[in-house]
Write a protein that binds this DNA or RNA. Structure first.
Length: 673
DNA sequence: CAGGCGCTAAACACCT
DNA sequence: AAGGTGTTTAGCGCCT
């Protein structure tokens, strides 16, 4: 159902192939990623069997992957909406919900405007830089949080209500029959509460849920006060069905669990910014009425006589709006209309699923957000929740990619230096944008900075295949990889390539063959690919003085100024490690890394976005030029991989474009084949 | 507008 | 025969 709306925007393309059609760029590029239902993504996911794509997603069931896609899609859509809101609210200082105020999104209004209906999620990704996306997601997160809270609350209320109802009804029913149903309910409730708990944890991790010092101590501590609730439940069960139950044991256990989880849920129920705990009155059923401010919850006042499912004179049971004059009548109605039967159970289940869906999505987005924030070194508006003994590892990369393949789900790690990688500059560019990346974004530093981001976010990296391949190869000690290893590197480093498998492999092969800079070397155990830096450099346009696009991008970025500084810093920081970390390199490989950074830093693209304006293109620190600087031109044009000067002695003579040194270096040290 | 670049798709050959 | 690896060609979009 929702899927359609999500993918709809993007669709319109032949689906399966996206081919080269008008959409290709977008749909394919970043698209593949987020495009939930879009066939391209889904199809390819099946890897190899893209054929299967077609309308696979239209099947009732979604695979986890599809679901994720879908969720992401939705997230982006939500983000889009937020953009609009943001844009409109930009005018009115008095922002609404305090939630985001602090971390007010910094998104160009223009973007927001554009995002209206015309942008597809993919485009959004392209247009928005990681930080911006992050901001959006943050907002989105807030919204979801809100929604979830409402859902959770509702859900709980309903479940509790049902429990009560059953309790009452149960007295007139054979206990045995009731037992099972209650158990089922209990399980549902438990499930939901677990979700809540999980969710809460996620939020806490991110700091989206602000725990008051007092609360911070832990939800569990709130037990005493909220005890009513937790303890109530078990009692309910005990008093009612538990005894004499076939599954009494398990039932009891669950009851206990429930107790704990319920507490958590309770604390969770209180919104991040909940005003003073004024109304922590537990409801008869143990449900604290904290969210009285919310539309829905507003209905059930603190009146002890009120009922969570009763408000504004009508029954709040999902899909039921029966009017009830008073509570008594309502209770009656409840017992008759919403007794414990299949229908009610089904409704509960549906509600559960809704909650679950949201929870999943939120969890995922949370994770992503966390990764993004960690990476960007940003904090939502809170003390970083993901406080880990941050030992900013030198650099994720220098280590020659020995990182354990963190699953996409793996929580993010250390924070990277503030700087938003160049990514922010080049329109967040999926493939299409690469041209920019080429010039303004040092792939290695960008990668280093957004390592986690790309690793976990299904976003197409803004680098060309060639540069990625090169990066992969150069990262290895001996600067050579087999095709398969290259594949592995791609999948290991980029979530995007984990998902969208099919085509990119072909592209990789294509690039390897096509570009002279990639040299195939027969090896003992087969063929390996190496990089001919000289060729690589050759193929890049010499210079690019302030490309219009770049400037444009730069300007469009809101926090451009601020970022500028951080970017540089980050860039420098991230680059150094590479250079100064020869530790793990073998003699020969030492040079291998250099090229990377150099190219990145000084590469022709020099026009580092940020630098462009404020600092010299080559913000390269002294060391940089020193360590690596090499001679300018490919001294001799002769063969590409000419055994350059003995690696040891790069010609200090010319300081040509930094780029060139690579070649040199590479050649020399590489002496490949 | 032309040319270059990068991407995807696809056909084909070769090898294991 | 199937699958992986390489090579080529073609068409398209974007950028300069």
């Amino acid at each position: 159902m929702m899927v359609e709306s999500a993918s709809e925007t993007i669709r319109s393309a032949p689906s399966g192939q996206n081919g080269v059609g008008s959409l290709s760029a977008q749909a394919d590029g970043s698209g593949g990623a987020g495009t939930a239902g879009t066939a391209p993504a889904a199809g390819r996911d099946a890897s190899g069997r893209e054929a299967a794509s077609g309308g696979a997603d239209s099947n009732g069931e979604m695979s986890p992957a599809e679901l994720l896609h879908f969720q992401q899609q939705q997230a982006l859509q939500v983000a889009r909406q937020f953009l609009l809101q943001q844009a409109s609210s930009l005018n009115s200082p008095g922002n609404n919900d305090s939630k985001q105020s602090a971390s007010a999104v910094q998104v160009p209004v223009s973007v927001a405007m554009m995002s209206q209906q015309m942008l597809t999620p993919q485009q959004m990704q392209q247009i928005l830089s990681p930080p911006q996306l992050q901001a959006l997601l943050q907002q989105q997160q807030a919204l979801m949080l809100q929604q979830l809270q409402e859902y959770y609350k509702k859900q709980q209320e309903q479940l509790h209500l049902q429990l009560l109802t059953q309790q009452q009804a149960g007295k007139q029913q054979p206990k045995e029959a009731l037992g099972n149903k209650q158990l089922a309910f209990q399980q549902q409730l438990l499930q939901m509460q677990q979700l809540q708990q999980q969710h809460l944890l996620n939020l806490q991790r991110q700091g989206l849920v602000s725990l008051q010092p007092s609360q911070a101590s832990g939800p569990l501590q709130a037990l005493p006060q909220a005890a009513v609730c937790p303890t109530d439940l078990p009692q309910l069960w005990k008093g009612e069905g538990a005894p004499g139950q076939p599954a009494e044991d398990s039932g009891r256990q669950e009851g206990l669990d429930l107790a704990s989880t319920a507490v958590t849920a309770t604390s969770f129920a209180s919104p991040p910014k909940v005003s003073p705990p004024l109304s922590h009155h537990p409801l008869p059923n143990g449900q604290p009425t904290v969210l009285t401010s919310r539309r829905d919850s507003s209905s059930h006042e603190e009146t002890p006589s009120s009922h969570p499912l009763y408000g504004h004179g009508e029954c709040k049971w999902p899909g039921c709006e029966t009017l009830c004059e008073d509570l008594g009548q309502f209770i009656k109605h409840l017992n008759t209309e919403h007794a414990l039967d299949d229908r009610s159970t089904a409704q509960c289940r549906v509600q559960m699923q809704v909650v679950q869906q949201l929870e999943i999505q939120l969890a995922k987005e949370s994770e992503r957000l966390q990764a993004m924030m960690a990476h960007l070194h940003m904090r939502p508006s809170e003390p970083k929740p993901f406080s880990q003994p941050v030992t900013v590892s030198a650099d994720p990369f220098p280590d020659g990619l020995v990182h354990p393949p963190t699953s996409a789900a793996a929580p993010v790690t250390p924070l990277r230096p503030p700087g938003l990688g160049s990514a922010s500059l080049h329109g967040g560019g999926p493939a299409r944008r690469r041209s920019n990346d080429k010039f303004c974004s040092p792939i290695s530093s960008e990668l280093a900075q957004n390592h986690e981001f790309y690793k976990n976010a299904d976003v197409r990296p803004p680098f060309t295949y060639a540069s990625l391949i090169r990066q992969a190869i150069l990262e290895t000690p001996d600067r050579q990889l087999t095709l398969n290893e290259i594949y592995n590197w791609f999948t290991r480093m980029f979530a995007y390539f984990r998902r969208n498998t099919a085509t990119w492999k072909n592209a990789v092969r294509h690039n390897l063959s096509l570009h002279k800079c990639f040299v195939r070397v027969e090896n003992v155990k087969g063929a390996v690919w190496t990089v001919d830096e000289r060729e690589y450099q050759k193929r890049r346009p010499p210079k690019m003085t302030g490309s219009p696009t770049l400037v444009k991008n730069m300007i469009s970025g809101l926090s451009y100024g601020a970022l500028n500084a951080s970017y540089q810093a980050a860039l420098a920081e991230s680059s150094f490690p590479l250079l100064s970390n020869p530790g793990m390199l073998n003699p020969g490989s030492a040079s291998s890394l250099l090229p990377l950074s150099q190219e990145d830093l000084g590469a022709p693209g020099e026009p580092l976005p940020s630098n462009g304006s404020s600092s010299p293109p080559r913000l390269s620190p002294p060391q940089y030029s020193h360590q690596i600087q090499v001679k300018e031109e490919p001294a001799e044009a002769e063969d590409d991989r000419r055994p350059g000067p003995p690696l040891g002695a790069p010609n200090p003579s010319t300081v040509g474009p930094p780029e060139d040194r690579d070649l040199e270096e590479d050649l020399g040290g590489e002496d490949m084949s």
